[in-house]
Design a protein around this nucleic acid. Structure first.
Length: 106
DNA sequence: TTTATGGCTGTCA
DNA sequence: ATGACAGCCATAA
């Protein structure tokens, strides 16, 4: 566990319900520009006790990434739809659901 | 130390 | 629009 991981977890924990963020976006916000892959790894090993909204992190195409070993991506989609995020052909409309940390939503 | 794999992404043909 | 490629980095073997 290092500061980078904490930064990643901190960013993820700030994503509000009904919104999503991309791995690259989280990486940048955590001060790890270009290290999107590291974000995915960090989340994959994050302890459940942190209760992070990991399901709100998807890939740059607006779709949930398929896991190689698990089926969590299935539950991930359910959790998102449960929060109001709508899928169209397996993808999310990032224009509308992507988290905008500093935006004026009015 | 080298290789392979993993919840990615931007660029280029 | 779509697919191939090359960077990015942590871990495990």
């Amino acid at each position: 566990m290092n500061s980078s991981y904490r930064a990643i977890y901190a960013v993820v924990s700030d994503i509000p319900p009904g919104n999503v963020a991309t791995y690259g976006q989280v990486a940048s916000l955590a001060g790890l520009h270009g290290q999107a892959r590291r974000v995915g790894y960090a989340l994959s090993v994050s302890p459940d006790s942190l209760e992070l909204p990991w399901h709100r992190v998807i890939n740059a195409r607006g779709a949930v990434s398929a896991r190689t070993r698990t089926k969590l991506h299935v539950m991930q989609r359910q959790l998102l739809e449960q929060e109001g995020v709508k899928f169209f052909c397996g993808k999310v409309d990032l224009q509308r659901f992507q988290w905008a940390p500093l935006s004026c939503s009015s």
